[in-house]
Write a protein that binds this DNA or RNA. Structure first.
Lengths: 201, 201
DNA sequence: CCGCTTCTCTACCAATTGGTAGAGAGTGCT
DNA sequence: AGCACTCTCTACCAATTGGTAGAGAAGCGG
């Protein structure tokens, strides 16, 4: 009755969660295997080495991320509304699959080889986003600034607010779903204030 | 002639750099010892276990961070100027001691026990910052919003922009010193836009 | 010179790591 | 039936891990 998920996919899913939460080095193949109810050698059958598994996980995560952005970007919203729609979806991602954004953080460690891998995947999407921002600034629908830099600020803010659970706890912000929604709204207000074009004088 | 740095301090310094860059799990005591030109057992003489060393590193990093903030906060600037001064100092930190902010990222992993440790140290500073923001909003020198949430956004943005070197590379932003200064200015513009009080109507 | 403390060393050790070799069970094709 | 292919297993292994035990050098007060 239960639809059986292929072993390979189950491994990828568990690895993504583990690497995104505890980190690559802190997750042993044995631990991963036990968690899956499978022997380590089964993992090594599907993926020739731990590194290969990590690469596959990064590829999968990149595909998921790109899909979210491209889907949302294809709706053709304008100005701040487009930004807001993306932020909403990143938050949804952070709530439903926190390990995905955690993996991004893991990968973007200085000197990480996997960073280049992820970068290759998301570069076209980044470019699209930058072009979008540039266009909207030219059209006067967003405050003018350096699009690359703005993108980096947006990325840092959104991913940070969505994932820095421990920092949030330290700040006395409960990480509940309700509170997260509240934070999202507050962040969107923050971004609106930063991005809204200055009133024409 | 050369002023000899005590072994304990040298260990702490190297460990901070390694843990902040490569992560705790990825740094073995042997690797650390080799890098110091010392045997692993020397490390274990000064710190009873790897975990104890990590705790000490976190304590030291927390003290350094708090000092930067408190020093800067004691100058009594107001409104956005105080925010800008802090941002400048965090960037200086990111350039001079990138491993320090890297360690913060490492520590704020979900479920990390060290997060509580760091949290205890910086909580008073966080509280001071929150009070400051609240006061400045009440005085009309900052746009009104939730101070905790604003603090989280600020933290995420600044630490993210200052540390996400790989993301910057992917975005085509060179991580040179010059470029970093440029990014800092652009970020400050972004924050000014977000935080400046709305013109009284 | 002696004994005490401080510090770094050599010599080990048990557990865990990623990885290899190959047996064997199940399925489907001929 | 027989064969090939797919998949997971048991059995190992060498290297690395964090950690213990204790020797020995160096300095110091008596």
């Amino acid at each position: 009755m239960a639809v059986e998920v292929p072993t390979r996919e189950r491994i990828l899913e568990a690895a993504l969660r583990a690497y995104g939460t505890d980190g690559f080095a802190a997750t042993s193949l044995d631990a991963l295997a036990e968690q899956l109810g499978v022997r380590k050698q089964t993992i090594l059958y599907w993926f020739p080495s731990k590194q290969a598994l990590f690469d596959a996980v990064v590829d999968e995560a990149a595909a998921d991320l790109v899909e979210v952005f491209e889907t949302e970007a294809s709706k053709g919203l304008r100005g701040i509304n487009q930004v807001e729609a993306i932020v909403r979806h990143v938050f949804r991602l952070a709530v439903r699959r926190p390990e995905l954004l955690g993996l991004v953080r893991e990968v973007t460690r200085p000197g990480s080889a996997a960073a280049a891998r992820l970068g290759d995947h998301v570069a076209p999407t980044f470019d699209r986003a930058r072009d979008f921002l540039q266009r909207e600034m030219d059209a006067g629908r967003l405050r003018r600034s350096d699009p690359s830099m703005l993108l980096l600020s947006l990325y840092s803010t959104v991913v940070g607010v969505a994932t820095e659970l421990e920092v949030q706890r330290a700040l006395g912000l409960s990480p509940s779903l309700r509170a997260t929604v509240g934070r999202r709204q507050e962040l969107i207000r923050f971004l609106r204030a930063a991005l809204a074009p200055e009133p024409t004088v």
